[in-house]
Design a protein around this nucleic acid. Structure first.
Length: 103
DNA sequence: ATTTTGACTTAAG
DNA sequence: GCTTAAGCCAAAA
């Protein structure tokens, strides 16, 4: 039984606690491939577990809300994160405060 | 099997 | 500080 990279990514994404966010690179690193940040984003685009995977808690390395083909685009995403307690720095997430502290 | 593409990241100008 | 270039990985056609 071998877990695919994308499965790991989905698991990690679901493991992000409320009120925190993770970067694509971070998820890629946790999944075992520090250089697969692009692939992670591609998985979010495919989004097999759409309602199960909170892709809105995944942001770029700068905290920029890239992508999100969902409702309202990044604006809605930002609002949702704000509601969950994520601290924003203008249009970007304040990673110094709200980046997922995975151990 | 090869090519294309994509919601990334880092380095350099 | 912002723009451009190159590097990287995995899935879909």
């Amino acid at each position: 039984m071998k877990k695919t990279f994308k499965e790991k990514v989905y698991v990690l994404t679901r493991a992000i606690p409320k009120g925190k966010v993770a970067t694509y690179g971070q998820l890629a690193r946790l999944a075992g491939n520090p250089r697969a940040a692009r692939a992670v984003g591609a998985f979010m685009r495919m989004n097999d577990d759409a309602p199960n995977t909170p892709c809105h808690r995944v942001v770029a390395a700068d905290g920029n809300l890239t992508g999100y083909s969902g409702s309202g685009g990044v604006t809605s995403k930002k609002k949702m994160l704000l509601k969950e307690g994520v601290i924003f720095k203008g249009a970007l997430v304040d990673l110094t405060r709200s980046q997922w502290d995975y151990s």
